[in-house]
Amino acid sequence: MLLNQFLLLAAVLFSVGVYGVIVRRNGVLVLMSVELILNAVNINLIAFSTFWGLGGQVFALFVIAVAAAEVGVGLAIVLLIYRNRRSVDIDQLDELKG
């Protein structure tokens, strides 16, 4: 098998994830898209670890752990937003407007 096919799969997942982050309104869905991006990165890490030893796998594990933390905190933030605004619509969070 070629290395490239895994990398391309990861690239597709990554781009789809970016699309989701840009397009989705619901905060929970944005977090899901971020998970797609992280998983794409993990595929890359593990694919490359066939060349350069187990470091890639170790990093993939770290990414999984960090992703778990990120989802925990991210969802807590979404919950807080919901509690304060009765909505998780990211479009409405535009107080940084210039």
Binding site: V18, V21, I22, V23, V30, I90, D91, L93, D94, E95, L96, K97, G98
Partner: peptide, 13 residues
């Protein structure tokens, strides 16, 4: 340039 600052995070993204 402030018109670029819509405050919408996803546009920044």
């Amino acid at each position: 340039l402030r018109h670029l600052q819509t405050g919408r995070i996803q546009q920044y993204t």
